[in-house]
Amino acid sequence: MSGTLGIAVIGTGKMGADHVRRLDRRTAGARVAAVADLDGDRVKEIAAGLDGCAAFTDPHAALAAPGVEAVLVASPGPAHEEILLAAIERGLPVLCEKPLTPEPDGALRVMEAEQRAGRRLVQVGFMRRHDAEYEQLKALLATGALGRPLFLHCRHRNASSPSFFTSDMLISDSVVHEVDAARWLLDQEVTAVTVLSPAPSGAAPEGLRDPQLVLLETSGGAIVDVEIFVNCGFGYQVVCEAVGESGSARIGDGQSVLVQSAGRWGGEIAQDYTVRFADAYDRQVRRWVDATRRGRVTGPSAWDGYAAAAVSEAGLAARRTGTRTPVVLAPRPELYA
């Protein structure tokens, strides 16, 4: 494509509205041609601020709108499969926020649709792969300078959780990021999951098992431990330390401006993911737009979305039963080799 890429944004909640602003103000070669959301007033208000943007409450109508050449899906996870299948049928490239689908069976159906189409059309929005620190750690591990990876120690903390957050969502909506990051950093699949839960924090809402400790075993013999704590109270924090046979490296310590004054020192802690990973989201969308305009699909594939969903499913079973649970993956299709 030589001109500006017309994009339909499906879902205009917090994440979708952030992507609309990103496409409109910070992404060259793209424009928002249509927006869709069940909230008719909100979607009309968003479209009114964009030249030539149409507003819809039906996502299928947005896909069919004039000038739409690609789709960014930011609606709730349970709605993803239907719109993904419709976009693939139309031959439209898609950037889909995680999860690809909440369950692995839905992700398998998305992969089957791509295989019938004969080409990849879907990129999954695992934005940590586009974060500068994660990219540096990936490159370092690839050199072998740390030796064979033995452990990834991960911390994933939020200041507070939304009112609708459930104990399962700590794994399916939060730890899923560490699942994909571990698979990508190590170039290994996750083979088993164990979940341990201490007594809930006093800051956790009634009935929420927060925090949790998730242990992932990998096909290469590494162990990944993830502390997920979504009501830590002080801010948003994502840390990952890779420990190899001959060294270690850590990212995510938040090296912002360090202030020393009045006998104290300190810095700022980001309060949510849109701040901590703002640059990663920008790079992700820009890279997707650039690749799409060249007729290519890069980044995390539908297979990566399926693998993450399969690990999440095993993690949920492990949390409920208190036992180590194997991850069962379907054979990997050639399209995703």
Rank of each mutant, 00 (worst) to 15 (best):
I10Q: 01
P66M: 09
S201D: 14
A309G: 12
T218R: 06
F151D: 09
T323Y: 01
P76D: 05
G247N: 08
Q260D: 04
A33K: 01
V328I: 13
A182P: 04
Q255A: 13
V238L: 04
H130V: 00
P66F: 08
D58R: 10
V243I: 15
A117D: 09
D282M: 01
R129G: 11
G147T: 07
A142L: 04
E313T: 12
G77S: 15
R324V: 09
A55K: 02
L185A: 10
V327L: 10
S167P: 04
Q260F: 13
Y336T: 10
T218W: 05
W288K: 00
T321K: 03
V175R: 01
S301A: 13
V73R: 00
T166G: 08
A307Y: 03
Q212Y: 03
D290T: 13
L196F: 07
R25N: 09
Y134M: 13
F151K: 11
G220Q: 11
V311A: 06
G247C: 09
W184F: 12
G305N: 05
A222G: 06
G322N: 10
K44N: 14
F277D: 15
A139L: 10
F151Y: 15
A28E: 15
D180Y: 13
G252A: 05
A34L: 07
V71I: 13
L92F: 07
S172T: 15
H19S: 02
G147M: 06
T166K: 07
L72R: 01
D187T: 11
V257S: 10
G221F: 08
P205A: 11
S160E: 15
A291M: 08
D18C: 00
L92H: 08
L84N: 05
R31L: 09
E135W: 02
A54E: 14
A159F: 04
E112P: 00
W303M: 07
Q212M: 13
L150E: 15
V214G: 02
N231S: 13
G299D: 05
L108S: 10
V20N: 01
G202T: 12
R296T: 11
R209N: 07
I46C: 10
E82T: 15
